[in-house]
Amino acid sequence: MDAHQESIARRCLEGAEANTMTFPQIVRTLMAAGFEGYMADLRRATITYHLMDGDGIALPAAKMADGIAPRFDAAAVQGAIKEAQSLVIGYTYKGFCAKVMAAGCAGYIVSFSGARAVYFGRTAETHVEHFPSAA
């Protein structure tokens, strides 16, 4: 990974946490820089950005005060995703993370080539969300 790609990964994480970049903007920016996806580990508060050659970078993310619920509620995770996709009034990425964690989401994997994100709980229950056509 070169310094430019590392800078882009950091800028995208900062943009998400500061609500200055939307998910579609982040996806386009990372893809243009050669990334194939990323994984958010909500338990450890890290985001790992992956390049196609296997290289990547793990960055610390904002630590959420509340823990992850023990039971995975796929419907609640999907509701939080729909709010994010609609950019409802008051939406923030940190608020999104808090909602999915309260729904038992321990992390998620975003695949650009697969055009989907897989949200998973503590016991590996999953919810697969395909990118909207505009992403």
Rank of each mutant, 00 (worst) to 15 (best):
Ala75Thr: 08
Gly54Tyr: 10
Leu87Glu: 04
Gly56Ala: 04
Ile81Lys: 01
Ala84Arg: 14
Gln85Asn: 08
Arg71Asn: 04
Gly54Pro: 09
Phe72Asp: 12
Gln85Ser: 01
Pro70Ser: 08
Ser86Met: 09
Pro60Ala: 11
Gly90Gln: 06
Asp73Lys: 10
Ala69His: 05
Leu59Pro: 12
Ala65Asp: 15
Lys82Leu: 09
Ala75Val: 12
Arg71Phe: 02
Gln85Glu: 08
Asp55Lys: 05
Ile89Ala: 15
Gly56Arg: 00
Gln78Asp: 10
Val88His: 03
Ala65Glu: 15
Ala74Met: 07
Ile57Glu: 11
Ala75His: 07
Ile89Glu: 15
Ala84Ile: 07
Ile57Gly: 03
Ile57Leu: 13
Leu87Val: 00
Ala84His: 07
Gln78Asn: 12
Lys63Gly: 12
Ile57Pro: 04
Lys82Phe: 03
Asp55Ser: 14
Asp55Glu: 03
Gln85Met: 01
Ala62Ser: 08
Ala80Gly: 04
Ala62Cys: 08
Val77Lys: 02
Asp66Ala: 15
Leu59Met: 12
Ile57Ser: 01
Arg71Cys: 06
Gln85Leu: 01
Pro60Lys: 11
Met64Leu: 11
Asp53Leu: 09
Pro70Ala: 05
Ala62Val: 14
Ile57Met: 05
Ala75Ile: 02
Ala61Trp: 05
Ala74Ile: 02
Gly90Leu: 05
Ala74Thr: 00
Ala80Asn: 10
Lys63Gln: 15
Ala84Trp: 12
Asp73Phe: 04
Ala58His: 06
Leu87Met: 06
Ser86Asn: 11
Gly56Cys: 00
Gln78His: 10
Asp73Asn: 14
Gly67Tyr: 05
Gly67Lys: 08
Pro70Asp: 11
Asp53Pro: 10
Phe72Asn: 08
Gly56Asn: 04
Ala69Ser: 09
Gly67Thr: 04
Phe72Ala: 08
Ser86Trp: 00
Ala84Lys: 10
Ala62Gly: 07
Ala76Ser: 05
Ser86Pro: 01
Ile68Ser: 15
Ile89Asn: 10
Arg71Leu: 07
Pro70His: 04
Arg71His: 10
Ile89Met: 13
Ala74Trp: 03
Phe72Tyr: 11
Met64Gln: 15
Lys82Pro: 03
Ala80His: 11
Ala76His: 01
Pro60Phe: 04
Asp55Ile: 06
Ile81Thr: 09
Met64Glu: 11
Asp73Val: 06
Gly90Cys: 10
